[in-house]
Amino acid sequence: MQGSAGKDVITTLIVAAVLVWALPLMVGTYTLTVLAIYAMLGLSLGLIWGFGGILCFGQAAFFGLGAYTYAIAAINTGESTLPMILAVMVPGVFAALLGAMMFYGRLGDVYLGVITLVVTLILFKFINSTAGPQYTIGNARLGGYNGIPGFPTLNVPGRTDLSIWGDGLYYFCAAALLLVYFGVTWLLRSPFGRVAVGIRENETRMSLIGYDVRIRKTVMFATGAAIAGLAGALFANWGAIVTPGLFSLSQSAEIIIWCIVGGLGTRFGPLLGAAGLGYLKFLLGQQSMINNTMLMGLILVLFVLFLPRGVVPAAMSVWRASVGRPRRAGRAGAVRRNRRKDRVDG
């Protein structure tokens, strides 16, 4: 098991290094940076929905909270290290409290979806209405519809004169995405992650085995929110402005579409869905013939009808059916692989 995990880490590192090096030859680093951020955001929902069984309609709320926390803290501190930490912690704590209320309140999936959606709407409405001078936190004005511009962006810790910008921000975001990916992998392979997958499969049975489902779901929910918060902080650095649009319903819906298209229950699927559809959105943004939102809706409908499991699971099935199976037959390694697959698919 340890050997196969080590092999996975090395493979992932090699693939990631090749991608980080090769992609800028085809696409600008400015675009790639935001795609890496979207990938991280997709992974945050992929973790809690695909492995924890928690369908959250409000992942954009944590994304927005992370972005706003960073902007507000950066204006007040004049540097980026503490704001980055706060941008992870604030959405995490907020989600822990919200999650505890929902899971200890034994709310069903539908109500959970409604509550997360409503929380996003409340935050969207609230932030939109903070245009007045009375809405100030320290030196930071929330700015209402116009958002918060002009906050200090990423710098090397302890060196406010050394900014991380342009290509540097791209490499920083790629490294952060890789770290989050490894963190999610480690979490899913840990007993906590395996129990979380069990809860996704059958909550009642896990309870009858003796697991307190509520605390585990709360922790999973908060972890996903913390990752979304980190993505939000990086997005704030990429755009150098935060606006209420981060909390919008369309943003929440997009994250769900990324996960469905990429493939739930896999780590790579949401990542691929987010980056792929994010790039498509970027390309569509350069023309006015086709309505972007309508196309995203069409893609979702087509996937739900013809590829409901998403790209990555479908590709894995094709791979197993064509190449994977003959190679595995009679090999002792198959036992190990199957066992691993049971725990972390994808």
Partner: peptide
């Protein structure tokens, strides 16, 4: 029968054993 359908027999039983 109240089981985790998407997981293997081995993983199902491991989850029960791991609780204690």
């Amino acid at each position: 029968p109240n089981v985790m359908d998407g997981l293997s027999v081995q993983e199902n039983i491991w989850l029960a054993a791991r609780r204690f």
